[in-house]
Simulated assay, not measured.
Amino acid sequence: MFRIIKRYYAAWRYRRAVRKARRLAALFGMKYYVINLNGSLKVVPKRTVKELIKRRRFRKGVTVEDIERHALFVTT
Rank of each mutant, 00 (worst) to 15 (best):
M1R: 05
F2W: 03
F2C: 01
R3F: 07
R3Y: 09
R3H: 10
I4C: 00
I4L: 09
I4V: 06
I5F: 04
I5M: 05
I5D: 02
I5H: 07
I5K: 10
K6Q: 13
K6A: 10
R7Q: 12
Y8H: 10
Y8W: 09
Y8G: 06
Y8R: 15
Y9T: 04
Y9R: 14
Y9F: 05
Y9D: 03
Y9V: 06
Y9L: 11
A10Y: 01
A10Q: 02
A11R: 14
A11M: 05
W12D: 06
W12L: 14
R13T: 00
R13C: 01
Y14A: 00
Y14Q: 00
R15V: 09
R15D: 04
R16Q: 09
A17N: 02
A17R: 06
A17T: 03
V18I: 14
V18A: 09
R19A: 13
A21W: 03
A21G: 07
A21H: 03
R22V: 08
R22P: 00
R22H: 08
R23Y: 08
L24E: 10
L24W: 11
L24N: 04
A25V: 01
A26R: 15
A26D: 08
L27T: 07
L27N: 01
F28Y: 15
F28S: 12
G29W: 14
G29P: 07
G29T: 12
K31H: 10
K31L: 08
K31Y: 03
Y32D: 05
Y32E: 02
Y32F: 15
Y33F: 15
Y33Q: 05
V34D: 02
I35R: 11
I35D: 05
I35K: 11
I35P: 01
N36C: 05
L37S: 07
L37Q: 08
L37P: 00
N38K: 11
G39W: 02
G39R: 07
S40G: 09
S40C: 08
S40H: 12
L41A: 04
K42R: 15
V43M: 10
V43I: 12
V44Y: 05
V44C: 07
K46W: 12
K46A: 14
R47P: 00
V49N: 07
K50M: 13
K50S: 10
L52M: 14
L52C: 02
L52I: 01
L52V: 01
I53G: 02
I53W: 06
I53N: 04
I53F: 05
K54T: 13
R55I: 01
R55G: 03
R57N: 05
R57C: 03
R57Q: 11
F58R: 12
R59V: 08
R59I: 02
R59N: 08
G61T: 07
G61F: 08
V62L: 13
V62S: 07
V62Y: 14
V62G: 06
V64T: 15
V64S: 11
E65D: 14
E65I: 10
D66G: 12
D66T: 09
E68S: 15
E68I: 09
E68M: 12
H70Y: 09
H70R: 15
A71Y: 06
A71S: 15
L72Y: 11
F73N: 10
F73P: 02
V74H: 05
V74E: 03
V74F: 04
T75K: 12
T75G: 11
T75I: 03
T76M: 05
T76F: 09
